[in-house]
């Protein structure tokens, strides 16, 4: 699946996101984060609440400002001040699916308006007929009936509402979709439906996903590569299976050991690793971002790196 000739769709370089002003109030939510997303893949971003994963997603869709660093989409800088024309293009090509379908739909608007809102904003349709056709197609794509366009959100269940949220995104014909915890607010039996829908759409339309989540079981199932973020820094990044098989950073290990397994016999004898940031001695040797084996990056200093290399077959790069 992974080849060297992949096209980089999105590039995040040394991104920093800050909130608040002045020395006392300033809070750095995302600190010096870099990664690439290739066309057609599903890139997972996992971390706990407050780790900055949503801030990264929001920085990419330009809701949060980048305090430092750059974000490039198909090689073009899209962070900071950009021409209006590019801004409109990016708005269309990068779309976001939100977490809670109960909160993210306008209760007073009909589905038709909710799905069309992006179209109205960009006026990228010729006439009313074309707009309707686009809405109808988007609804069909997510497995809803076109008749639903005349209904209000409260008439739908959670799973259907999330489908409306996805239709609203699809109607823009995006290339990159940022899915911010798209299934965590849904019921177990509905989650599988929405996950399958996302995979289907990816295959049919060649979409690229940035999948933000805290549920590692879901991330393992759906993503190709995964980055683990802790307190605003990415601590490890690798192909998903590789990361789950051979986690190096102690935080990744702790996170993986905490995933509940639906298997009572395994679960009873399992030991949870607890991550204590004090295990790093960074006062003299600050950590840096290094590719320890092909496609496997980790945040470590020289001394830790030596340890990690022992765990990598062939002792890494």
């Amino acid at each position: 699946m992974v080849s060297k000739s992949r096209e980089v769709l999105l590039e995040v370089k040394n991104l920093r996101v800050e909130f608040g002003e002045g020395k006392k109030k300033k809070f750095t939510a995302v600190d010096d984060v870099s990664f690439n997303i290739y066309r057609g893949e599903t890139f997972g971003l996992v971390g706990e609440s407050g780790s900055g994963k949503t801030s990264i997603g929001r920085a990419i869709v330009r809701i949060n400002k980048a305090a430092d660093g750059q974000i490039l989409f198909k090689g073009e800088i899209i962070s900071g001040n950009i021409p209006k024309q590019l801004d409109r293009e990016i708005t269309r090509k990068i779309q976001m699916i939100f977490q809670d379908p109960m909160a993210s739909l306008n209760e007073r608007a009909k589905v038709d308006y909710i799905v069309s809102e992006g179209l109205y904003n960009l006026k990228n349709y010729k006439n009313e007929e074309e707009r309707r056709a686009k809405v109808e197609q988007a609804l069909r794509d997510v497995g809803l009936l076109p008749e639903f366009a005349s209904r209000f959100p409260h008439e739908f269940s959670g799973g259907q509402r999330q489908r409306i949220g996805i239709a609203r995104v699809l109607v823009m014909e995006p290339e990159l979709i940022i899915a911010d915890e798209p299934i965590s607010a849904l019921d177990v039996s509905i989650r599988a439906q929405v996950l399958n829908l996302l995979s289907d759409l990816q295959k049919k339309k060649g979409l690229t996903y940035l999948f933000i989540a805290h549920d590692l079981a879901v991330v393992r199932f759906i993503t190709d590569r995964t980055a683990v973020i802790h307190k605003g820094k990415i601590v490890e990044l690798a192909e998903t299976e590789r990361l789950f098989e051979n986690p190096l950073h102690p935080y990744t290990r702790a996170l993986l050991s905490a995933i509940p397994i639906p298997n009572p016999r395994l679960e009873r004898n399992r030991k949870i690793e607890i991550y204590d940031p004090a295990c790093h001695d960074y006062s003299k040797n600050p950590p840096f971002w290094v590719e320890i084996e092909p496609e496997h990056f980790v945040l470590a200093n020289e001394k830790e790196l030596e340890e990690y290399r022992k765990k990598v077959p062939g002792h890494g790069i």
């Binding site: 177990v188 039996s189 509905i190 989650r191 599988a192 439906q193 996950l195 399958n196 995979s199 289907d200 079981a217 879901v218 393992r220 199932f221 759906i222 299976e241 397994i261 639906p262």
Partner: peptide
């Protein structure tokens, strides 16, 4: 159905069992 729809039991790349 509840157990089969768990991503932990799914096979990557194939659709997950859904109710």
């Amino acid at each position: 159905a509840l157990l089969s729809s768990l991503p932990q039991l799914g096979i990557k790349g194939e659709p997950l069992y859904s109710i």
